[in-house]
Every structure is written in C-alpha cells, then in structure tokens.
C-alpha cells in the first residue's frame, strides 16, 4: 500500500530524456508548465500535450507507471471538476433542483482536468527520469546567483537532498512498524474515527523515535566527515551540458511560442 506511492520516485534508464542535463530538464519542465497555463484554447493545450507525448515516448517509460502516478490525485480532480461544472455561470444545459450544468462549466472543468493531469504527468516525468540527488544539485546551481542576496541555496538543496533521501526509508519504516503492530493485533483500518486515530499512536511514536535517532546519527556522521556547509565544497559529479541539451531547450521554446501564437491569435481576433 505505502509502497505504491510513486511520486518523486526515480526509475533509472538510459533514454535521451534520462541523459539530459538536469538543469535543462528543470527549465524545460518549467516551460511546459508555462505552456499549460498560457494555453487558453483546446488547440493550444493540444500543442502542449503533443510536446508531453513526444517527451514521454522519448523517455521510454511504461504508460502504466504514469497511470499509477495519477491514482492519488483522482479524488482532487473529481471534486474540483464537479464544483466547476455546477458553479460556473453560462448557458444551462441540464438543471437538477438548484444545480445547473452549463456549457461554460463543462468546458472549464474539462479544460482544468486536462491541465491538472498534464501538470502531474509532466512533473512526474521529470522526477521519474532524474535521480533526486542530481535534481537537487541542479536546483542548487540554478539558485546559486541568489546567494548574493544571502539566499541559502546550498542549505536548501542539502535539506531537500536529505528529505528526499529519507522519504523511502521512512515509508519502509512505517510499513515495517505497521506490520509489527498488526502482528500484535492492532486494528488500523476499521472502527470509529476516534478509535482509528488512537490506533495511530503505536505507529507514530516509534516512527518519531526512529526519525530523531536517524537525524542524530546523520548529523554526527556528517560532522565526522568535516561537513561545514557549502563554502568551497566540490562535487563528485558535476553537471555537464552539451548540444542535445540546447537542442531540447530550443524545441521546448519553439512549442511554447506555438502555444502563445495560437492563443494570442485568438485574442487578437476577439
């Protein structure tokens, strides 16, 4: 169950997308998100989707994986789209009691569903094809100019690295503790709310205890290796960019332009 959470998980591979420089991948993902939000018409959104599909095929990941990553956000999508369908003013198509299904509502929520799904898929593609360590490295480098105004870029990246590193460990640990308490007859998924909340105590306390223990051990281990912040720290693996990275970036900018032109065109006519 907990193991099935795939958000933020990395699936190693050797496709073009895997091999792109992480800094460029981050930029390209940002451009994709801009595409999604600047698209105001279905053709514009279509172009953004074409861009995603091309990148997805190039990554050679299995479509099953993408569908799995959607699972946790299905409820959010359903709720927001229902709200949108019924509460946006427009020409009513069907009306039930006080609720009216309007053409505008249908269009807006349809648009929003596609946008949300594309957003999740796009960012999943980034995390599926980039190792978290490399990704935070890229974030640190992109944010580095901000250190001039005392922005803690290195500390932020280190915190993210550590947090990312421990997500799977903590999930695994939670799973283990849950199993161990279930073996002692703990009932975790039945009973009234208060009882279920109480049933969390045997899980949360050991989890906190072990998190603190891990944090202490890690801090000690880092100090033993003379860690003292980002100053003068070199990297084992430096990020290198090449022709293919600039090519990929150019292509995504091209797509962004296409989206803008189409939507601006519509605006111009209107």
């Amino acid at each position: 169950m907990l193991k099935d959470i795939t958000i933020g998980q990395y699936f190693p591979g050797d496709s073009v997308v895997h091999k792109l420089d992480a800094r460029f991948k981050l930029l390209i993902t940002a451009i994709f998100i801009v595409m999604l939000f600047s698209a105001d018409t279905f053709p514009g959104l279509g172009i953004a989707l074409v861009f995603f599909v091309i990148s997805f095929i190039a990554s050679r990941l299995s479509p099953k994986l993408m569908i799995k990553s959607m699972k946790p956000i299905i409820p959010v999508i359903i709720i927001t789209s229902i709200l949108n369908i019924f509460f946006i003013e427009g020409v009513p198509l069907i009306s039930i009691y006080k609720f009216r299904l309007t053409d505008n509502g249908l269009r807006t929520s349809g648009f929003m569903i596609v946008r949300l799904i594309a957003l999740i898929c796009g960012s999943s593609l980034l995390t599926y094809t980039t190792s978290p360590i490399v990704l935070t490295d890229a974030i640190e480098q992109i944010l580095r100019p901000l250190t001039k105004i005392k922005f803690p870029a290195h500390e932020l990246a280190m915190m993210m690295t550590i947090a990312l590193r421990f997500i799977p460990t903590l999930l695994e640990e939670t799973d283990k503790i849950m199993s161990a308490q279930k073996a002692r007859g703990a009932e975790l998924d039945s009973g009234p709310f208060l009882q279920r909340a109480k049933a969390l105590i045997p899980i949360l306390i050991p989890l906190f205890v072990s998190s603190f223990r891990r944090a202490e051990e890690l801090a000690l281990a880092m100090e033993c290796r003379c860690y003292n912040g980002g100053e003068g720290r070199t990297k084992l693996k430096t990020l290198v960019s090449g022709g293919k990275d600039y090519l990929a970036l150019s292509i995504s900018i091209l797509f962004l332009c296409a989206v803008m032109v189409i939507d601006m065109g519509r605006l111009g006519v209107a």
């Binding site: 283990k176 503790i177 161990a180 073996a183 045997p202 050991p206």
Partner: peptide, 19 residues
C-alpha cells in the same frame, strides 16, 4: 486478526516497535 493471535511474529529489530 485471529490468525495473528495464533501465529505470533517477532520482527527483526523488534525494539523499534516499542511505544
């Protein structure tokens, strides 16, 4: 649940489940 009372399982490093 009845099976779990019948078959008691002590996990590896069971001290981490103490609460």
């Amino acid at each position: 649940r009845d099976i779990r009372f019948k078959v008691g399982l002590v996990f590896q490093y069971p001290e981490y489940q103490i609460f």
